[in-house]
Amino acid sequence: MLKSKQSLRALAVLFPFALLLAWTISAQMSHDRGDIFRLKIVGYDPVDLLSGHYLRFRYDLGKVDLCKDIPNKMATCACLKRGKHGTMKAEYGGSCEQLQSSCETILRGNCQYNTFLTFSERFYFPEEYTSVLALVPPDSQAEVKISKEGAIALQKIFVKERDILDYAKERIRFPDRKN
């Protein structure tokens, strides 16, 4: 009885440790998996009660309406092709199963009130840059990794080829200087 109680108490401590570790490893694996692409990003600013020190944006995948005739909160996929400026653009959308066989690079997402979201549209940054990163700077691009299955992992954000954190540092040092 005492032994089983002790093992339960041990399990209570080990379980969160093991699960958090497993989750971290899986996040690291997702982060490392796939090929690197650049996607254009633009501001996205719905009311966010839990907003912190992060940039909220959405991927600008071009003019194709990926959420046309798709119910709210429904999973969907976009077929991506390299655009003129090296960034990826959506060529067409559709069900992930169909696209997996017909398209080389697919991106999995979800239609939230007619907006295609991938749940990687948040970039955390240090608190000191809050004043200069309140909005997505113009001409921003996200460097992402997209796996063969279409899962996306955000790596970095660039503002005209400059790392966004370097850009923020510079904006703080020289507030009057233009981009």
């Binding site: 958090l20 989750w23 971290t24 996040a27 839990l50 749940f119 990687s120 955390y124 992992a153």
Partner: peptide, 18 residues
């Protein structure tokens, strides 16, 4: 543990519904 969830989400830029 809650802080850990926040830390991992911050490092890998993950987010979802709260």
């Amino acid at each position: 543990s809650m802080a850990g969830i926040g830390l991992v989400a911050q490092i890998y830029h993950l987010h979802s519904q709260p």
